[in-house]
């Protein structure tokens, strides 16, 4: 199983993204980070930490569970409902620029659900999408604003992102068999 990004590479990529954020937004005013559960959350927290180191500013960070917004919830003939976990956004998102963070961008459906969920929370000024890996095969017109790595894949391959906070190590692996 080829390792596409090792710990070092992931770290440098996230730092680079943090700098891009500051540049594009001309500072950090009105910014907030929202990580999509599960692995978007530690990535968002790391980016927040880097932004604090670069700019000295505290960027509010929250986590979003999009299970209840998925478009495939009732479509399975068999199989369990996905487990619902809590959304925690302790700040108002009105008039903020929300940086939505996820680990892998694939069909775009997760992002669509996240957009729906966010809009039920309030009226942000703008939403920008950050992903660690973009593996192509979009089914909806969704584009990431910040991409860690573009990774062309075949549909039967799957991209596994492992993070220290959850999996004990940092790496991105490309596996054959099963969609991500």
């Amino acid at each position: 199983m080829p390792v596409v990004m090792d710990a070092d590479r992931i770290g440098r990529t996230l730092t680079r993204i943090a700098h891009e954020i500051v540049e594009r937004n001309k500072g950090t005013d009105d910014l907030a980070l929202v990580g999509v559960r599960t692995r978007g959350v530690p990535i968002a927290r790391r980016i927040a930490r880097t932004l604090r180191e670069i700019t000295g500013n505290e960027i509010p960070t929250g986590s979003l569970d999009i299970t209840l917004y998925r478009d495939d919830l009732m479509r399975h003939a068999v199989g369990p409902q996905p487990l619902v976990r809590k959304t925690e956004i302790q700040f108002s998102i009105d008039d903020r620029k929300i940086l939505l963070v996820d680990d892998v961008l694939y069909t775009g459906r997760t992002t669509r659900a996240a957009l729906d969920a966010l809009i039920d929370y309030g009226r942000p000024k703008a939403i920008q999408l950050i992903v660690l890996v973009d593996r192509g095969h979009r089914e909806l017109p969704i584009k990431a604003d910040y991409v860690g790595k573009n990774l062309p894949t075949a549909p039967e391959e799957s991209v596994q992102v492992r993070l220290i906070e959850i999996d004990g190590e940092d790496e991105v692996v490309l596996e054959t068999g099963g969609g991500a």
């Binding site: 299970t67 209840l68 917004y69 919830l73 729906d116 969920a117 039920d120 929370y121 309030g122």
Partner: peptide, 8 residues
């Protein structure tokens, strides 16, 4: 939440 609804 302000909008107490989810589409589940």
């Amino acid at each position: 939440r302000p909008i107490k609804k989810v589409p589940a």
